[in-house]
Design a protein around this nucleic acid. Structure first.
Lengths: 181, 181
DNA sequence: GATGCTTACGTACAAACGTACGCTTCATGT
DNA sequence: ACATGAAGCGTACGTTTGTACGTAAGCATC
């Protein structure tokens, strides 16, 4: 009988990471203890040891996802020195789109669906949006920030669905229209 | 031994309807034959009799959902006699929002997530968006239609997440900005 | 190296799942 | 009234699921 990797401090984090990738591939519907365990290369027993149940694992996974994306968002905008650059940053956010491939977008949809059905975790969605709005308000008025934020979301979804991407030039024009430039 | 309702021509449709409401409440993850059967008040056996499997039931349910929403969309826009009315129709679409309560939005997210993971049914999403874009193009230029379509999506999502709705006045301003009015 | 305490794992179990299939019921033609 | 075929249901089966729990490994202390 052989026991391996008893000491493995990254394990918990690796499980969460694995959960995200399982979600991307199989959705929340297919995110089972066993599948995640295999993806993370940990024994099944580790699942119930590290997490209180599948829902609590999902909650942590989604928290990681939203935190990560919000950070990306913030960083991109913070780097902009003036309004013109900020506008261009927004264009970049939209066009570089789902921050890491199609899978990320799937994860985001699953997050939306899941958090809508779990009022206890509604903060995942609203907090994230508050953060992105706040990041935008460093450069724009609150009303403009609201409009841009919604626009980013909407364009990304449409870009994902219809394969025919809205060209950057057009995105730029929209951003200009929304920010009175 | 008692047998009931052998003759029940609406049964198939009722099952699909029930599937949608189960999805709203439990997500695709919790959409099981048994739960749907109970919701539709039909015996479990009817599930496999009327549908080839759970995925094929989901596909039909989502098709119904998207068709229904697209129709709503089209009808609202078709009723507008001129540009000004069309703009107002768009505002109405956004503000009256999820066409039938929070549950509808959950269903839509689940549809997005599901169809993204099922390439065979990607047409559900892209077809719907094509339809709504087409409806918009009766009144606006293609570029404006794309922008409005994305905007509608984005604002609705944000309205759902953050409880603090974007006021109609502001929506009206955005629509005006996007359509050069 | 023996002891005791913490950490982590293997495994077993009940519940819930999707699905197949034989049998009942009904409508129809005679 | 009866036969017959189609339609629809009840049930049972093999899998997969989440989770609990006894037990083994690691580690500090002596």
């Amino acid at each position: 009988m052989e026991r391996k990797r008893r000491h493995d401090p990254e394990r918990r984090a690796r499980i969460i990471e694995a959960a995200l990738s399982v979600i991307a591939e199989h959705g929340v519907a297919g995110c089972t203890h066993r599948r995640v365990a295999e993806a993370a290369d940990v024994p099944l027993g580790s699942m119930t040891y590290h997490f209180d149940g599948i829902d609590s694992l999902l909650a942590e996974a989604f928290a990681l996802l939203s935190g990560r994306i919000a950070e990306d968002y913030r960083a991109t905008l913070r780097a902009a020195p003036d309004i013109a650059a900020a506008r261009e940053a927004v264009v970049a956010l939209i066009c570089n789109g789902p921050w890491g491939g199609r899978g990320t977008m799937t994860q985001i949809f699953e997050l939306y669906a899941w958090s809508t059905r779990h009022p206890d975790h509604a903060g995942l969605m609203s907090g994230w949006m508050a953060q992105s709005r706040e990041a935008l308000e460093a450069h724009f008025t609150p009303a403009q920030a609201r409009a841009l934020d919604a626009m980013i979301e909407g364009v990304m979804i449409h870009n994902l669905a219809s394969a025919a991407l809205i060209p950057p030039e057009e995105v730029r024009a929209i951003v200009r229209a929304l920010t009175g430039g």
